[in-house]
């Protein structure tokens, strides 16, 4: 029962802050709301006994990506104009589509007989994940690093100054 209450709290934080990300008129507010979304998801991970994921979620998303995002927002515009407009447009069609999608997902979820497993014990997973990355999942691990490298090369290339002819 306690778990349900905690789950509801985290889920609520995630959804409400996600809504604020989408609907806020000010891009800085949106960015800050994102912080809570990430936080809520980290909480959900904890509930699923995924301690490593929860920690990386906080470290990387909140600590890294979000800060970067805010830097980006601050640097791309003059800081004096805090009124960075971020208007929501075409609400009606979006609402219809989103509601339809929500409805269908709900139907699917409702009709499904969910397989249930007992709540896992909270044991540390970091070591196991580490071992798996170096053994069974070596290949995905390496390829993920190449994805990042490519993104890095691309980002540097595009961000760098103009080509000298």
């Amino acid at each position: 029962m306690l778990l349900v209450i905690i789950f509801t709290i985290f889920a609520a934080i995630t959804i409400i802050s996600a809504g604020m990300v989408a609907f806020s008129q000010n891009i800085v507010y949106s960015a800050f709301s994102l912080l809570f979304t990430f936080f809520g998801i980290a909480g959900l991970y904890v509930l699923l006994a995924a301690d490593f994921l929860a920690a990386t979620q906080l470290l990387i998303y909140v600590g890294g990506i979000l800060v970067l995002l805010l830097f980006g927002v601050m640097l791309t515009h003059k800081i004096q104009e805090v009124n960075l407009s971020n208007e929501s447009m075409r609400l009606a069609p979006a609402a219809i589509v989103v509601l339809a999608f929500l409805g269908l997902l709900s139907i699917a979820i409702y009709r499904t007989q969910w397989p249930t497993v007992p709540v896992p014990e909270l044991t540390p997973t970091t070591a196991r994940i580490g071992t798996l990355f170096m053994t069974d999942y070596l290949l995905p691990f390496e390829i993920a690093s190449l994805v990042l490298l490519t993104a890095l090369v691309g980002a540097v290339f595009i961000a760098r100054g103009r080509v000298k002819k």
Binding site: I143, G154, R162
Partner: peptide, 22 residues
Amino acid sequence: ILIYLGLELMTVSFYVLSGFFK
């Protein structure tokens, strides 16, 4: 998982390539 990673590697590369004439 591998499909997805391959897909991402390919797609990320094409993000860069399609914007190559910056």
